[in-house]
């Protein structure tokens, strides 16, 4: 293994679950404020095997999921989940639409994918892979996306304007 690869591994290895979750919080705050124009209120977080649940904490059923996978020294994924109202908050914020503007389902899916993409990109730059080498997938978006990772590292639930959303990090156990 080259010195550069060793450095990259050390850099990832030094970050524990709590550190990564803190960086995810920074990334979420930055993306929500800069691109969506919202200050997300953190209402729940977990840093263990128990996945956060927006239905349990906020009473909103998950209707949309967007997954961006990363691979490199560690493999995993960032998953953004939202109910209808949370998804509309994100879409209207990104596109600067008012409540009176109609939003197509296709626009919602694309907006959530882009939001997940920005969150994962930010996490990658800030923590996982500041020097490069990791690759990101294009977003996998749907109403029930299969997640092929077994280690739930942590998750955050945010209340937005009318709805809520959760952001989670999953890692490949084998890595």
């Amino acid at each position: 293994m080259s010195t550069e690869e060793n450095r990259a591994e050390d850099s990832v290895g030094q970050l524990n679950e709590a550190d990564l979750l803190e960086v995810l919080k920074e990334s979420a705050d930055e993306v929500f404020l800069t691109m969506i124009g919202l200050v997300g209120v953190l209402v729940d977080e977990s840093c263990d095997d128990d996945a956060v649940d927006i239905e349990k904490s906020e009473g909103e059923r998950v209707e949309y999921e967007a997954v961006v996978s990363f691979s490199g020294q560690r493999s995993g994924a960032v998953i953004l989940r939202a109910g209808v109202e949370g998804a509309l908050d994100i879409t209207r914020g990104l596109l600067m639409l008012g409540e009176e503007d109609a939003v197509e389902d296709e626009e919602i899916m694309d907006a959530l994918g882009e939001c997940a993409n920005m969150l994962t990109g930010s996490l990658k730059c800030k923590a996982l892979d500041p020097s490069g080498g990791f690759t990101l997938s294009t977003p996998n978006i749907g109403k029930s996306v299969v997640v092929d990772y077994d280690n739930h590292l942590g998750g955050l639930v945010y209340r937005l304007e009318k709805g809520c959303t959760s952001v989670e990090i999953w890692l490949d156990e084998a890595a």
Partner: peptide, 22 residues
């Protein structure tokens, strides 16, 4: 969103004039 130095270098070396991170 690919804001890492390595990707930026690849883009500039490949012929990009500038780079804006999301």
């Amino acid at each position: 969103t690919e804001g890492g130095d390595s990707m930026r270098e690849q883009a500039i070396q490949g012929g990009a004039n500038g780079y804006v991170c999301k």
